[in-house]
Amino acid sequence: MALDTRTERRPSFAGLLWHSTVGKKTAMAVSGVVMLLYLVAHMMGNLKIFFGPDELNGYGHWLRTVGEPFLHHEWFLWIARVVLLAAVLTHAVAAFQLSRRDIKARPSKYVHKKARTSYATRTMRWGGVILALFIVWHILDLTTLTVNPRAEAGHPYQNLIASFDRWPVTTLYIVAMLALGLHVRHGFWSAAQTLGVGSAARDRVLKTVANLLALVLTAGFVAVPVAVVTGAVS
């Protein structure tokens, strides 16, 4: 008669993760790493601008043919876009829900304030919002070409130069990339802790990789508008 011995069943793996603070951070960490990998590839692709219009435009064209003939024209690009959109949404929704919870958990502030956390840590939330707004503008400018002054599909090199010839745009872009660097600096190290990879022995390596990633990504992305403004690329 051992029918009733089984204790209550727990929710599914995904359910357990999404409904706990620890699990939700795991979702943020995984989606963050996906976006980070994309950023590295994106930054490397951007650097082709230094090898002339043919190289960058050719690279843009090649991206649409990846996976052919197995994948149809542009399918690879659309798969990447869907994955990235899912990552951005997961990251943003989890961040929003966790932030709301965090603010509620600490309703009254101390009279005597003492902020000791690093600048990168303190700016994760608003930095994330700035990045999200930047991404929307960035897609309208250089993907859909809605707000691009030249807007000639298939000619990313010329569109990019036209966009960066406007100094407010260049400034905005550089500010966003600095925000990105700060976000990646705390984000990469945090993701390592959330996914359980960190330890006292590995901490120096992880912090160094986080700083290097932040520095290389920011420098790599900022190099393009700086080159356009200074006339090194035209």
Binding site: F13, L17, T26, A192, Q193, G198, S199, A200
Partner: peptide, 21 residues
């Protein structure tokens, strides 16, 4: 108590969530 205590618990949590079914 070190900050990595939290890292270790995060690892334990994901491991447990995977096995609990």
């Amino acid at each position: 108590i070190p900050l990595f205590s939290i890292t270790r618990m995060n690892r334990e949590y994901v491991r447990a969530a995977r096995k609990s079914r």
